[in-house]
Write a protein that binds this DNA or RNA. Structure first.
Length: 582
RNA sequence: GCCCCUGUAGCUCAGAGGACAGAGCAGGAGCCUUCUAAGCUCUUGGUCGGGGGUUCGAAUCCCUCCGGGGGCGCCA
């Protein structure tokens, strides 16, 4: 049936009167259009109009950049023209003629070099409203990821000091990615891996021990290669205040073990607390020590050996990672018999896959990117598909004050802690800022600027939209307006361009989340939230919601309800609070 | 030297092969006796770092050159 091709070119941009149909199942866009195109191409192939099977054509159905081109567009005719042996526009015409009837679709027009632009009826947007308003913030969830169990491992900072802003970026990016993956249906586990067993912890203990003894009045020096941050001094004093000289009198080995245990708990406590301040939850905290205790570290090495990828040279044991694309082989056992850090890391990743995750996503800082090839090499050597391990690299976060960069180094100790940043700027603003840029983009967080411009911060723009929605509810209630049931509301009264624009933005939620999840791109959601807020603020300015016109008031209140559910979904995915008033 | 990221409006950044390259901020001009002006409208501003190539079509993919950031230990 070719009915759609005969639709008027000047089809009204505003909705037609609301359909009185009650139980029309809502199709999913753009999938429905894609199916219709495939169907049309199939029948063209079937009747001999196409020389080859179009089933393999890689066409897309996407939003046209220019809004006047309609709601959806496809490049199918451009993609297939070559193989069909006809001009794109001619193929597009055939395609349009063979399109089956599609609910809510009012026109399919050929445009430009051979695009087909699709326009949906206003009824579709009322369908969007109904769904969003009645089902709440979860209305756009999908089951795309139902078959793929994913673990997101992030932050994973060693427990030997406070978190800094770079760690925080990984935290926010990982957290939002996990939320996105969950929204599109993946079973997701969020895990924090901490190294409580290595040389760094020994150094940390020695540093803390020195600070502790200094606090007791002893003449102790923090080792050259130790940790020199202010917090070490503070925590040493804390330990002294808590335990007095009870540890100082122990033999050195026992004392250091005690200090290490205390310091580990102190650092982990600080880290957990800081993460809680910015609403970054974890399902599991995985200790490296447990891998040693269960023999998994030895086992990992044994399996590499059994696979034939270990050899001895210059007194050390090497892993032939270069056989899997790494630039050179790596030492796994040092000449004095100690494992290098990669061994427990290999054991850890084996453990992950043996726990049944189909995919493992690690969020790492840019300074670890060189480590990816050897880790993937180890998985491949042990028979795992390295493609199941995915590393998201976040570029650096620089801190600045009044435009002056602040240089930071954990070991040198000169750094501003994440906790301080949160105290200064607030959890919502920090989360927004850290989520708003592509992980590939280095960012500079200027504290003075963040404070000075806090009222211009886009996060408030989003939150303000929500606060307005809530305040409208309260105002309506105060005027004695009780929203009618949706079925008794005449949504066809919603014809103002600003109203339609709100619904069009609401309609984007599902596809935006899908794309952001697929691309591991939290920043798409901050941008989308901004668009929703813009549409809403404009609607608020252009249309008075609560008026003497009762029917229109009810319709608009339902529109507000739909927008609120989309805004809540967006803020929820970003982990940003939705204030009732500002 | 090798590897990764990056170069788009004055500034900060979106844009994973499509139509006329977008947004915020900054600059200019306006909008509050009515539901929150933390808001809204209009507007100025571009050799997508340079050069080749692939393609019907390139900011996007490939090569090369130039600039910026980061990483390259028997440290984690």
């Amino acid at each position: 049936m070719a009915i759609v091709s005969r639709c008027r070119r000047d089809a009204p941009a505003v909705p037609c009167p609301a359909s009185r149909e009650v139980n029309v199942p809502a199709p999913a866009y753009p999938e429905t259009i894609r199916d219709a195109i495939s169907h049309a191409l199939g029948s063209l192939y079937g009747d001999g109009s196409l020389p080859s099977d179009p089933a393999e054509w890689q066409f897309v159905v996407e939003r046209p950049r220019d809004r006047t081109h309609g709601d959806w567009a496809t490049n199918a005719a451009l993609v297939g023209a070559g193989r069909a042996g006809m001009s794109p526009r001619h193929l597009a015409a055939l395609l349009v003629e063979h399109l089956p009837e599609v609910p809510f679709l009012v026109s399919a027009e050929i445009a430009g070099p051979g695009f087909v632009n699709f326009t949906l009826s206003g009824d579709w947007y009322l369908e969007v409203l109904r769904r969003a308003a009645t089902e709440g913030p979860d209305h756009a969830r999908t089951d795309d990821g139902a078959g793929e169990r994913i673990q997101v491992e992030f932050v994973s900072v060693n427990p030997n000091g406070p978190l800094h802003i770079g760690h925080a970026r990984g935290g926010v990016v990982g957290d939002v990615i996990a939320r996105l993956l969950g929204y599109v249906g993946h079973p997701v586990q969020r895990e924090y891996y901490y190294n409580d067993a290595g040389a760094q912890m020994t150094r940390y203990a020695a540093s803390l021990d020195a600070a502790y003894r200094r606090a007791l009045g002893e003449n102790a020096e923090i080792p050259e290669d130790g940790y020199h941050g202010e917090y070490v001094t503070e925590w040493g004093a804390e330990l002294a205040a808590e335990r007095g000289d009870a540890l100082a009198v122990l033999p050195e080995g026992d004392r250091l073990a005690e200090v290490l245990a205390w310091g580990l708990a102190r650092a982990m406590g600080d880290i957990e607390e800081t993460l809680a301040m910015v609403r970054i939850p974890f399902d599991a905290w995985f200790s490296e020590q447990t891998l040693h205790d269960r023999g998994e570290v030895d086992e990992a090495l044994r399996r590499l050996e059994a696979a034939g990828y270990l050899y001895r040279e210059e007194g050390a044991t090497w892993f032939r990672s270069s056989a899997f694309g790494d630039e050179k082989d790596r030492v796994v056992v040092t000449s004095d018999g100690r494992y290098t850090y990669i061994v427990p890391d290999i054991a850890y990743h084996l453990d992950k896959f043996e726990r049944g995750f189909d995919r493992v996503i690690n969020i790492w800082g840019a300074d670890h990117h060189g480590y990816i090839p050897r880790l993937k090499a180890s998985l491949e050597a042990l028979g795992f598909d390295p493609g199941r391990l995915e590393i998201v690299i976040t570029q650096l976060v620089n801190i600045a004050r009044a435009g002056e960069p602040v240089r930071m180094s954990t070991r040198a100790g000169e750094f501003i802690t994440f906790r301080e940043v949160v105290d200064e700027v607030g959890a919502d603003a920090v989360r927004y800022f850290l989520a708003a840029y592509s992980p590939d983009t280095p960012i500079t967080f200027d504290l003075d600027e963040a404070k000075r411009q806090s009222m211009d911060n886009p996060v408030y723009y989003l939150q303000y939209a929500h606060a307005r929605m809530r305040s409208l509810e309260d105002y309506a209630a105060g005027q004695g307006v009780r929203r009618l049931p949706l079925a008794d509301t005449d949504l066809s009264l919603l014809v103002h361009p600003a109203e339609i624009e709100v619904l069009k933005q609401c309609d984007r939620l599902r596809e935006e989340v899908r794309e952001a999840a697929l691309r591991r791109a939290p920043h798409r959601i901050t941008a989308y939230g901004y668009d929703v807020a813009t549409a809403f603020h404009r609607f608020y300015t252009d249309c008075r919601i609560v008026t003497d016109d009762e029917a229109l008031t009810h319709a608009r209140l339902w529109l507000v309800e739909a927008a609120k559910s989309v805004m809540l979904a967006t803020l929820g995915l970003l982990g940003i609070t939705a204030p009732d008033r500002m």
